[in-house]
Design a protein around this nucleic acid. Sequence first.
DNA 1: TCTGGGGTCCTAGGACCC
DNA 2: TCTGGGGTCCTAGGACCC
Length: 421
Amino acid sequence: MKNKVFALIDCNAFYVSCERVFNPKLNNQPVVALSNNDGCIIARSKEAKALGIKMGVPLFKVRDIIKKEKVHVFSSNYTLYGDMSRRVMNIIAEFTNDIEIYSIDEAFIGLDGVPGDIEKYGHKIRKTVLQHTGIPVSIGIANTKTLAKVANHIAKDDISFLGVCSLLKFKNIDKLLSSVAVGEVWGIGRQLSKKLNMHGIYNVQQLKNIEDYRIRKMMSINGLKTVTELRGVSCLPLEEVRATRKSCCTSRSFGRSLQELEDIQQAVAIFSRRAAERIRSEKLLASNVSVFLRTSPFDKKNKYYFNSSSIHLSVSTNDTIEIVKAASRITSQIFKLGYLYQKAGVLLSGFYNEGEEPVDLFSTNYKIRDNLMETIDSINNRFGGDTIKVASEQHLGTWTQKKEKCSPSYTTNIDTLLVVD
DNA sequence: TCTGGGGTCCTAGGACCC
DNA sequence: TCTGGGGTCCTAGGACCC
């Protein structure tokens, strides 16, 4: 059988690249993008990386470097990044139907049967995406998804590849693999890395040669899949159809800590509504609602508290009002006075597709609010997500998140369209 | 002062049943 | 005094991903 061919296309420092598209002055400058609440650094330009700013580091820990080196800082603008992602994926989809959108900035594609030089084809994709969207990407090509990830890593790391690394052209990739640390492999995180290092396994070449039973023992069943893929045997197929989700969580850290049940109830009401809206848009019904609360795990002066609980609904629903009610009941149960709460969240699960849910004999009126929800969704879609809310969301703003340096939504809001002089 | 959010999967251990 | 064995299901916690 002929070998499969996979490519992984990954946008370079995606959020930073999005900002640069609309603000070319940022090119060749150190730039970072922040997580929600302006908490951590989650994207860095290569100039920012060179300054030693690490991925995931809290903003306050690198304030000095940022000031001294005049690093440009952006709050996260998911409206912009989401729209740019859609554009990038659409361009890629013009090259092949075999596409798995893996994350906001990554896609796997299948390249079986592409005639001619596959590496050249990769360069063509790269050039087209850059030309049509302004977003630079790196492409890794190999016989398995895990190796395509490795190849992508090499393409990013070694500029001599010019953004595209195909492992297919190498007779023997062992030398290349011996230069890649195990921790860089897809599926091997901090803990596993540490464990492997303790066993004297540091690079991918070494990992490939460990006996299966040892891999299985150290890394469990998925680890064995990972290593098999590193050996060139494909175990992970392209997943072109997104599986229906198993849970839907909306959670936020508060801009300041909250102590009153009333404030937390308001936040939970908002999270409930957003989660309900999201599952409605996917035509799902939830049969389980859970809520969690916690204080800051970093606050050494005050006592830590975490609690969560859930309610099983005998009639599954995606009705905002039902879900807010359930979440509010849970919140009252798990709330304890005397703590400084820093984060809360609502998690929906136990999904059924609309129309496939079990019906409760004793409930006859559970569908009466369908029309109401439809109307609310269409109004909110048209006039903005927060136009219609539920009453328990009143007095918003006591805990709003930090977002000090957000760029405009250039591509989705007519008022912030770029003007060319 | 200031530390994100949203997912998935696996495993171990307890509850429960016959 | 001596106190089985095997199966399933659920949950919590930990690991991973971006």
